[in-house]
Amino acid sequence: MQQKVEFRGQVSFDKAGTGTGAMVYPTNGLGLAGLLVGIATHATISNSARNGQKSEIEKEADKVLQPFQGTLDGFQQGEMAGLALLDDASMPLLTDNASPVGMVIVSAPVFYMTQDRSALILDNTVSVFNAERGEKPVYQNTVRVVSRASEAADLVAYWQQEEGRALRSESAALFRQSVDIVRQQALATTTEAAAARTFRYQEGKKEAMERAQLLSEHCDRALVKNLRGWLMSIPLKRQAAPGPECEAPEQVAL
């Protein structure tokens, strides 16, 4: 619980790769053995170059978080989960040495900020255990929740104001949504899912896509199951102003 909440910049590897190229393997007079050594050396160099390139892309993507480093350095998982579950007595936050009863959710959340800084994405990998029945989880999945893009003109100022209030409260709200989705889905009886299709949704101010099956749709958000079986709560493009039943804020109160 005293671990920092993990935040990363949203990353794309669409342009990753070191391209094609001819290779002449020197055999150094060793025939087949020399050729095999040459190929092994080439593989090592190539893997190292690809891994280095991926690290560079990730490092570059993480730069989007630099203005918020102060807030993120002090943002602990315990605080985030506490904010998310504060008003729900049915879901007490467990300490490491607690002896729980009923169902226990173990969660590993990772947050991403879109490169335009307008939205947060949570990937929450969860396992649900029956506390009385041992160590095998009764449900496991990853839940992705994508926030709706903020319309603030100055997004750095928006997330940073009042010591990162918006950043902390929106993270908590996404976490809460992911836990609610897990509770619904872990207890849901299996129904026949719709056919998979390519969904379009808003990821920050850009359009994103995912091949998935629709589970439900409400208030311009869809809950879908992607090809990995992950559950995704995604904001759809708004066709009209949201109705009064959909005006609940996406942030929890601090």
């Binding site: 070191t18 391209g19 190929i39 690809r50």
Partner: peptide, 12 residues
Amino acid sequence: TYSAYIPTSDPK
């Protein structure tokens, strides 16, 4: 993509 025997990218 490959360079001779060695892949130079993840599949896409």
